[in-house]
C-alpha cells in the first residue's frame, strides 16, 4: 500500500511543475487562450471554441415575477420590480431598498444605463 507522500513514486520528479521554491507559473485564462486562438489563420468553416457560441436571441425576454417567479403582468415603476398580482405588489412595497436592489441585480437589470 502506498501512503500519501509529497512526491509519489509514479511521477518523474524532474518534470513536475510544482517544484518547491520554483517561480510561480502564470497560467493563461480561458479568455486569453481564446484570444490567441482567434489570431491563428483559420479556414472559413473551422469550428473552434468561440464559433459554437450561440447567437443572441431575437425574441424579447419573457418577464417573470421577481417575487414568486410567476408570469409577471406588471412592473412597479418605482422599484422596477416585476410582480404577478396585487398581493405581490404589497410585498414589493414593503421591501427595503437593499432587497429590491438585490432582486434587480439577480435579474441582471441593475445597470444604471440600461
Amino acid at each position: 500500500m502506498q501512503t500519501e507522500t509529497p512526491a509519489p513514486v509514479f511521477k518523474k520528479s524532474s518534470l513536475t511543475q510544482q517544484q518547491p521554491g520554483a517561480k510561480k507559473r502564470l497560467w493563461k485564462s480561458l479568455k486569453q487562450i481564446l484570444a490567441t486562438e482567434r489570431l491563428l489563420p483559420w479556414p472559413e468553416d473551422a469550428i473552434t471554441y468561440s464559433s459554437i457560441n450561440p447567437p443572441p436571441s431575437f425574441r424579447p425576454a419573457k418577464k417573470y415575477s421577481d417575487i414568486s417567479g410567476l408570469i409577471a403582468f406588471y412592473t412597479d415603476p418605482q422599484t422596477k420590480l416585476h410582480y404577478h398580482n396585487a398581493e405581490e405588489f404589497a410585498t414589493v412595497k414593503s421591501l427595503p431598498m437593499d432587497l429590491t436592489a438585490g432582486y434587480l441585480a439577480l435579474r441582471g437589470a441593475s445597470s444604471i444605463v440600461g
Binding site: M1, Q2, E4, P8, V9, F10, K11, K12
Partner: peptide, 11 residues
C-alpha cells in the same frame, strides 16, 4: 493515481 494505489516506478 495515489488513491488508485499505483506504485509503478516513475510511470
Amino acid at each position: 493515481f495515489t488513491r488508485l494505489g499505483i506504485n509503478a516506478d516513475a510511470c
